[in-house]
Simulated assay, not measured.
Amino acid sequence: MHQPIAVFDAGIGSYAIVAEIHKRLPEQDILYFADRASFPYGSKGKEELLAIMRRTLRFLESYTPSAIVVASNAPSIMVLDDIRQHSLVPLFGVFPPIEEALAMSANGKIGIMGVRSLIESVALKQFIAHRATQPDNIVLINASPMVERVENGSFLFEPEATQTAVDSFIDGLFRQHPDIDVLTLSSTHLPWLRSFFETARPDCRFLDPAESVVAGLGDGTRGTAQIQGLVTESSTYDVGALQRMLQQFGVDIPLEAVTLP
């Protein structure tokens, strides 16, 4: 691979970013790293996330990437500024599209759906305070149960059960916050459930920040259009399960099981 763009998350969530890069930069080599052994990032505190990010950067830098995309909202918000000083290449993160959501909202009431550690973090509250004149109008929603349905593949292989779970989640959310009319999908796993969310609440807008993230990467580096997958495994999440999920999407890329030093 020639100066690939490396994209990583704790699982399948980041493949949506990979697909968008491949679409926009078809000659770019891409290194897709699914760190399933660390899933979920959303259950981890700042210090544990920092350790994971530093270890991951050292590993990915051995492939001489031209850029690294931290394709997860939680570490992007919570630790990206801290890890920039440890990176030898440009780092890009994924962030809740608050300004875009507020611009779309008819009443200024929006929600940010993300994993628990992000939703409960001081860093997210600070992020919101710098981007919204009325931060109290922004509801923070723990969507970790929905993220789990993506990583375990049930959204693909049990669509009816997934729709039932999404319906219940969304119904509970709107009973508490009936005025919300825009929700951000602020975990890279959540866009895989977008059609389920839209079925559950067709009058609400759901925002995926993937396109804006990829636009920020610029023109990339001409390579051979390869996509190489690297995967860490756990007893719950193995390479074979990820391969089956990708094949369900019609994606057939090589996946290599790796262990981070």
Rank of each mutant, 00 (worst) to 15 (best):
F196R: 15
V79S: 05
Q3V: 14
R222M: 02
Q226C: 04
G13I: 07
R131N: 06
I30N: 09
K23D: 08
E158Q: 10
R84V: 03
Y41W: 12
I17A: 08
Y32R: 14
L60Q: 11
I21K: 07
V239C: 08
D219G: 03
Q226I: 07
G45V: 09
G45S: 07
Q3S: 09
P254V: 04
D35L: 14
V70I: 05
S195N: 14
V115A: 15
Q248S: 12
G108N: 07
Y32F: 14
Q248L: 04
I68W: 09
Q248C: 14
P65L: 09
P191F: 15
P135R: 01
H130K: 04
N137I: 11
F157P: 07
A143K: 07
L49K: 00
I21F: 14
F39D: 03
G216F: 02
Y237C: 01
I77K: 00
P145A: 01
L207N: 03
G114C: 10
S234C: 02
F249Q: 06
Y63A: 05
G114A: 09
Q126I: 10
A51C: 14
Q134W: 08
G172D: 08
R222D: 00
D203I: 06
I5V: 15
A6M: 10
A210M: 03
P90Q: 01
S187I: 13
P261V: 07
Q85S: 14
L173M: 12
D167A: 02
G172H: 06
I170Q: 04
M146E: 05
V213N: 02
V70Q: 02
M113W: 14
A101H: 08
V89N: 06
K109L: 05
A6D: 08
V115R: 03
P135F: 02
S121T: 01
Q85H: 12
S43C: 04
P65E: 10
S14G: 14
R222T: 02
T64D: 10
S76C: 12
E48L: 12
S154M: 06
G114Q: 13
P135N: 13
Q163H: 10
I110L: 06
A257E: 05
I5L: 11
I128D: 01
I112K: 07
S168N: 12
Q226Y: 06
V166N: 00
A101D: 08
P159W: 11
G220D: 06
Y32E: 13
R244N: 04
T133N: 11
Q228F: 00
A19F: 13
G111P: 09
F206V: 06
V231N: 01
Q3A: 06
G11F: 09
S105N: 12
R84A: 15
A161L: 07
G13V: 15
Q247H: 09
P75G: 07
